[in-house]
Amino acid sequence: MKGYCMKPGPFRYIAAQSVEEALDVLASAEEDVAILAGGQSLVSLMNLRLARPDIVLDINRVPGLATVQADDSGARIGALARAAVVERDASVGRYVPALITAIGHIGHPQVRNRTTIGGNVAHADPSSELPGLLACMEGTVTLASASRGAREVGWDEFFISVFTTCKEPDELVTSVNFPMAPGWRYAYDEVATRHGDYPLAGVSMGLRVDGGVVQEARVSVVGVADRPVRLSSVEAAAAGQDASAALARDMAGIARTECPASDDAHVSAEHRRWLAGTLVSRLMASMVDAA
């Protein structure tokens, strides 16, 4: 034993060398297993002893999970792909630039060097950027288990509540999928106390505009509820309308009514709803200008 204090509680450390090995550990363990990917949330929680897993299953040495693919059908990001790598990927920048914007709001570069896309989504922090973008883009998460193989679930099924997903204890997130369909464009913006902090409100917006008329809109907000929220009244109000400054004002007004929010140590619920409306308005302005 070393003569110094340890921040995390004791655990058994297992470094899986393959997906199969990781799934076997998850399937056979009778104790509480925490999957260690980037560790930027998990190790922090373990240091504070808010998390005290019996086993830490390190998947960082598993080959084949860090893939990054993007084309006009969207981006398929392997669970272990680092945020910093995706952020610099030219094809993601070309086909899904909103993903680059959202990643740029996650912590700081030193954190993004470790953060993984799979870990970020699996952690399901209700203020986290990527779950919000996934909700806006009607994205999916691919899960694998030893006994049942792979399954792909939509964002609405995946995110249940704070730090809670539909992932079963024997399952591993293997990829996160941000689909693109013809004519759609997406953007992300947020307001945080300081850059790199979790947002007070973060809005993702998708628009399909044809001939200056909004055909369809998708709007999601993070930081306001226990999981990402879609603003269906805002989306419905935009459909069929001219993509104009007046529409942006209307959408912002509806967002300020529809968006759920609660008070916390930083800001009031009313302020949070106001921010969500402001972000809707800003995104509309930037996306219509960019059209």
Binding site: K7, Y13, A15, L36, G39, Q40, V43, S44, N47, V56, D58, N60, P109, Q110, V111, N113, R114
Partner: peptide, 11 residues
């Protein structure tokens, strides 16, 4: 550059 408090020595 990484946070050394958020990595395990084993890693």
């Amino acid at each position: 550059p990484v946070r050394s408090c958020l990595m395990l020595a084993a890693q």
